[in-house]
Amino acid sequence: MDTPEQAALREAVRDFCRKQSGPGAWDRLTGELGLTGLAVPECYGGSGAGLAEVAVAVEETGRVLLPAPYLSTALAGAVLGEDGGEPAGGAAAGFLPGIASGALRAAFVFGDSVQVTDGRLAGVARHVLDGAEAGLFVVRAGEALFAVRAADAVVTPAGTLDETRSQATVEFHGAPCARVGCPAGRAEDLLRVLLAVESAGAAAHCLDVTVGYLKTRVQFGRPIGTFQALRHRCADLAVEVTSARSTAYAAVRAAVSSSTGSPASAVSAAAAELAVLGPLAKRHCADVFWHAAAEMIQLHGGIGFTWEHEAHRYLKRAKTSQLLHGTPAELRRLVSQRAGLS
């Protein structure tokens, strides 16, 4: 399904993820690989690719739980990039070069608690993903989206169950802001799509590692992967993981087709599709990820319960991904409502 360019990108990101470690990772990811600029227009220093390419990078960084605010920053590049050449309060021009270069990290603030009055934001938001290290917040107030410098907000990093990515509580006390053209609902659905892709990649990793373990772990004189009770659980997981990837990429296609660069005739239908597939894919993929991580621990036995083994990080990421931007129950209701099933 990848184009040749996407396949090359995937290989490059996968190779980077295999070797990355330590504090220099962000510089390589943004500098050498230019991943935060994938959806940033070229005039602002990006590569002008798009959400499909961001999705490839998110799937691969998700596979290894890359501990960097990549998803939020790359999405900010796409969302602000949709304003294209329009000055639109200057948000795009002001922030996109920093996003593309990696100098500026971003986070999204959704929820209902932030208000805009006379061009200034007020309110408090908790559970802001990638919020602790963000230099830029893209904030929902009403149905609109605003860009705010972190320097104009009060940011309190939170301790997190999933230590591979940060959260923060963010307070705005009359923070100056610039209007962003992308509707807030669309931005949140795009974030859900990327969480879906990330979950699909991480779930595939859980399955890969578990299958690898079942081939080598010997009990009762043979590899435990020969036992049907375990084989069938892996087969069921393979069905789910396959379905997660297909669903995530269906949502990515809706995201791409509804972006500003696409043919106008297709945009409104794709936008309606995205409104359904964003929550649908996020719920399905995070649920699959959760199941894959839980099975990863169970099928590894005791070793899977240890701190050294990576399984617990996947379990914690999976639960976090289920709870972020709509719990499974909330998203089920949202899908029902948006698909007209009530």
């Binding site: 399904m1 595939a204 399955l207 393979a238 993981v241 396959t242 379905s243 990837r245 297909s246 669903t247 990429y249 269906a250 597939l277 649908l280 719920r283 399905h284 089920r332 209701r333 899908v335 029902s336 698909a339 099933l341 009530s342």
Partner: peptide, 30 residues
């Protein structure tokens, strides 16, 4: 109502998966 939402979701997931894994010649990665 929840089960109806699940059935509809499941049908979309089934459709995407069927189209993807049977609609292309390349073997699916999973």
């Amino acid at each position: 109502a929840g089960r109806i939402a699940d059935a509809w979701t499941g049908l979309q997931v089934l459709r995407f998966t069927t189209e993807e894994v049977l609609g292309t010649a390349a073997p699916d990665p999973v």
